[in-house]
């Protein structure tokens, strides 16, 4: 278990470094993190399944500005590891992931509060002419703090928690398993609603329902819809702008 915990801790570091130091290229998303866990523990299929389940919720948790959403990266690493090591279903993994993600969120808040002290230190270093030390606060100490803030909880959870989770998973009654399955199907609705709350305005709402209705009645896959959507958006943009240009022409005629 030591080696597994170690590798998973390192995956945690990779994931958080992506989010903080490599442009947030979405390696921190559950689908990627869980697949990495699956690769490391030798069960890619399970990793993909857990990742896809968790991703549906995570998709809506937008990481913007001062808001700290539940830490799905940490949640998905620990939950998919538990799922693979203890044989729990992806749905159960989901319900393990959420409390972990909330704990991870608290830890993230503490780290970000602690980093406020960097400001005072940076000012002091600059006054003393130690410019390198001021920028090192960011690139070295920031990195170290985040890496440890991920490695330690993941390592501890896997190393000490796996057996406990195994025992708990074995005694979960059927009604609860079924209930968790329904819960795991309700949660994506929340994820999508979160996305809508940032993107949907009254004027734009029909587009959401167009996408919904085409798939609901026609059964076309998301991939197919995506291609149609891009083309439709381009056409609408052209119509919009043609209209504007024509209007400008009309105006200039009127003034003549």
């Amino acid at each position: 278990m030591f080696w597994q915990a170690l590798i998973l801790g390192i995956i945690g570091i990779i994931v958080i470094l992506d989010s903080r130091f490599f442009g947030r290229l979405n390696v921190e998303q559950p689908l990627i993190a869980s697949t990495l866990v699956g690769l490391a523990l030798g069960d890619v299929t399970k990793g993909l399944m857990v990742g896809a389940t968790l991703e549906l919720i995570s998709l809506g948790l937008v990481n913007v500005g001062a808001a700290a959403p539940p830490d799905m990266a940490m949640g998905s690493i620990i939950a998919s590891a538990f799922s693979i090591l203890s044989g729990a279903s992806p749905e159960t993994a989901l319900t393990i992931a959420i409390p972990i993600a909330v704990l991870g969120q608290l830890l993230g808040i503490v780290i970000r509060m602690g980093m406020s002290s960097f400001n005072v230190m940076a000012e002091k270093f600059i006054d003393e002419g130690k410019f390198k030390k001021a920028t090192n606060l960011h690139i070295i100490w920031g990195m170290v703090l985040y890496a440890l803030g991920y490695f330690i909880p993941i390592f501890v959870a896997i190393y000490f928690g796996t057996n406990l989770v195994k025992q708990v998973v074995n005694v979960i009654p059927t009604w609860l398993t079924n209930g968790l399955t329904v819960a795991s199907a309700v949660l994506p609705a929340y994820g999508f609603a979160l996305l809508l709350s940032t993107m949907m305005t009254k004027k734009m709402a029909p587009f959401f329902f167009i996408g919904f209705l085409i798939t609901a009645y026609g059964g076309i896959s998301v991939t197919g819809i995506a291609f149609f959507a891009v083309l439709a958006a381009i056409i609408l943009d052209q119509i919009n702008n043609n209209g504007k240009e024509q209007k400008q022409d009309d105006d200039s005629l009127d003034s003549l």
Binding site: L56, A205, F207, G211, F212, T215, S221, A229, I234
Partner: peptide, 18 residues
């Protein structure tokens, strides 16, 4: 505008399929 349309249509499709 384009990004918003594409995003919303795809989300709608995901609600129906996922």
């Amino acid at each position: 505008y384009i990004a918003g349309i594409v995003g919303l249509i795809v989300i709608g499709s995901m609600v129906a399929s996922m």
